[in-house]
Design a protein around this nucleic acid. Structure first.
Length: 283
DNA sequence: CTGCTCCCCTGGGAGC
DNA sequence: TGCTCCCAGGGGAGCA
């Protein structure tokens, strides 16, 4: 907070997507701005500046934002944008780079990431209202309200950022396994108890992952270029064919919601019938 | 609405 | 070693 962006370099212009801020590109990329706050909702981050500009950052699959002492070179083909950041001074250094100006570099080889400039915090609010509650921070009640009664496959719902925000393919599989819910299970067939269990599983999974610095399969590093460690704790993700950690039977690999999925067909039984109806009772 | 399939793009690993 | 094929953490569009 209070840091100033004193220079912006943009190597690939088309990373900056839709914008509600009609200004020259350096302005939209926050050139000259003083940072007011950093925010996050689900997988999206936002830099909000004192003069009201907003830059939304979505890392996609291979994106990374790292602090570096030198600007990227021309040979660095995937360094799309670099900001020279001057920390607030004088102040006690709370950041690894102290009070020295450092480069914040956005790299994204696959270019599935996105930068979007918005004209105001109101526009950010509007954008994020289209997303479901943040899966990591929202109270379980809010997640319950988002999931209850949906006639959708559990995995599809978890991956849909408009239902709840922040769960991707890895953590969807891990959460469903923890909760004993099959990925293709329609949510409207789940009991209240099972839904509560699923929501708890999502929050346990995300908390554990965040505490371990995330999952690095290939690309992911944090702002200090540190890889994550959670991949070694994955219960089932990437383990199709291996033994289920609970029952020992082989984990199945399948496609659900169009994505690579792993599940244990024994521990994550599909429920086809509505709960609470007993055969033979009146109709 | 829901779920498919395809597409955006590059790089790493497996297999020949 | 070098080549090809296949796959990937996201998400939007278009279609059934």
């Amino acid at each position: 907070m209070g840091a100033t962006i004193v220079e912006v370099r943009c190597g690939r212009h088309n990373m900056l997507a839709t914008t509600s801020l009609r200004s020259p590109r350096p302005v939209r990329l926050l050139n000259g701005a003083t940072v007011a706050s950093l925010q996050r909702h689900g997988k999206q981050m936002a830099i909000v500046t004192v003069d009201g500009r907003v830059l939304v950052v979505h890392l996609g699959m291979s994106g990374r934002m790292t602090f570096e002492s030198a600007p990227p070179t021309d040979a660095d083909r995937h360094a799309h944008v670099a900001w020279l950041v001057q920390p607030k001074s004088p102040s006690k250094p709370k950041v690894p780079w102290g009070n020295t100006a450092h480069w914040l570099v956005f790299r994204d080889p696959r270019r599935f990431g996105e930068l979007a400039s918005l004209a105001s915090p109101t526009a950010l609010e509007r954008r994020w209202r289209a997303l479901g509650p943040d899966a990591f921070l929202a109270p379980p009640d809010a997640l319950m309200a988002a999931l209850r009664g949906l006639r959708r496959q559990a995995k599809a719902a978890l991956l849909d950022q408009a239902v709840l925000a922040g769960v991707g393919n890895i953590y969807a599989d891990e959460s469903l396994f923890r909760a004993g819910v099959h990925p293709t299970q329609s949510l409207d067939r789940l009991s209240e108890d099972r839904l509560v269990r699923l929501i708890a599983a999502i929050q346990v999974t995300l908390t554990a992952a965040v505490n371990s610095g995330g999952s690095t399969l290939r690309d992911y590093v944090d702002a200090n270029a540190q890889a994550g460690g959670y991949q070694s704790y994955h219960l089932i993700y990437g383990r199709a064919g291996e033994a289920c950690p609970t029952c020992g039977r082989p984990l199945e690999g399948l496609t659900a919601a169009g994505r690579t999925t792993v599940a244990c067909s024994t521990c994550q039984r599909l429920i086809h019938k509505r709960r609470g109806k007993v055969a033979g009772s009146s109709g």
